[in-house]
Amino acid sequence: MINKKEAVIELKNVYKSFGSKYVLRDFDLTIYKGQSVVMLGQSGMGKSVSVRLMLGLMDVDSGSIKINGKEITNFTEENFYENNRGIGMLFQNGALFDSMSVWENVAFSLLNIDKMNPDVARKIAIEKLADVGLPAKVANMMPSELSGGMKKRVGLARAIADNPSIIFFDEPTTGLDPIMSDVINNLIVRCVKQLGATALTITHDINSAKKIADRIVMLYEGKIIWDGTPKDLDNPKNEYVEHFVKGISL
């Protein structure tokens, strides 16, 4: 249920540069509780950077970032570790720990942060794997034995293992075939709904965006230039968005 009174993620006048090149400039974005927002944009437009800033993986040049009402730009590293509890993240290539088995990956925070009993953590990990459509026999496999689609699913299971209230998805369907992409999209929709979480997905896959989102924003040259619903994307009334959707260069 979207609650437009409660902003969960709030970025205001955010600037981020690398050397002399500004990736984000005067970037504003507010995401409300329960919303599933997709951020579209070409490669190199700052989509991943914006998410990394929200997770404290990068420092902001200036501006304000609030997560669950807390200003995070003045956080210490320890504050970020604390704040990231309750936040899930699916990385583009899964970023699975290759020295650990699948179930240890999924149960990582349960074992190492929550200090849960390994038997209980394993049971939860297998349940989460089932949630993303993977059988229990996968639990003892190593990440190197998995296909690209399976890695994404394990990454998704790990992201939702601790029942987060905010989930970020970084290019969840990149590198997957259309059928597997659809499977992942459906899983994302189901997981977000089940958890009642707020989600931000970054992608340049229009089909994914339409399937996952209840709100779509378009990033161009470091700013949000368009904000609408998946339906609005059919007639965006913006030249750049129209070209992006049709895949035609300006």
Partner: peptide, 18 residues
């Protein structure tokens, strides 16, 4: 180094692990 370039270090941080 491999953990760093494959975002496993970032994954640790997002899982609240220093």
């Amino acid at each position: 180094g491999t953990m760093k370039v494959t975002e496993q270090i970032d994954a640790l941080k997002t899982l609240s692990m220093n």
